[in-house]
Design a protein around this nucleic acid. Sequence first.
DNA 1: CTTCTGACGAAAT
DNA 2: CATTTCGCCAGAA
Length: 120
Amino acid sequence: MTDNKPIHDLIREVPEGEAASYGMIASLLPGVGPRMVARAMRSAPDDLAWYRIVTASGAPAGHSGAEEQRRRLKAEGVNIKKNGAVDWSENRWKGPSQKWVEKSRLEIEEVMEIIAGWKK
DNA sequence: CTTCTGACGAAAT
DNA sequence: CATTTCGCCAGAA
């Protein structure tokens, strides 16, 4: 396996009550595609908050445990829309901590730009 | 070595 | 809306 560690570390940056998509995570990790993130999830440590990761549409990914995922998210205060998808307008991840940015090879400007793209 | 597939995304049609 | 196409790369077959 490759370094899923950067992926795991980034996911750990997602606080309670917020959710992130595969694309969001991947976009912050150059050279890493959404599928890598998904793969990293499958072999994720138990302490990893995998349930905070959903698809771009906000709906839980098609895996066993999707219902429990929704349950945990809602328990954390994440608002789920009627169609069963996460309400991005309220619970979208605000981005990684500054410490993470320092540790990464990315410039703060790039990160800001990427985050701005999420709102679109 | 080649091929296929995957907890996916985004743009094109 | 749904369907298709392409891209991403690591494992499995």
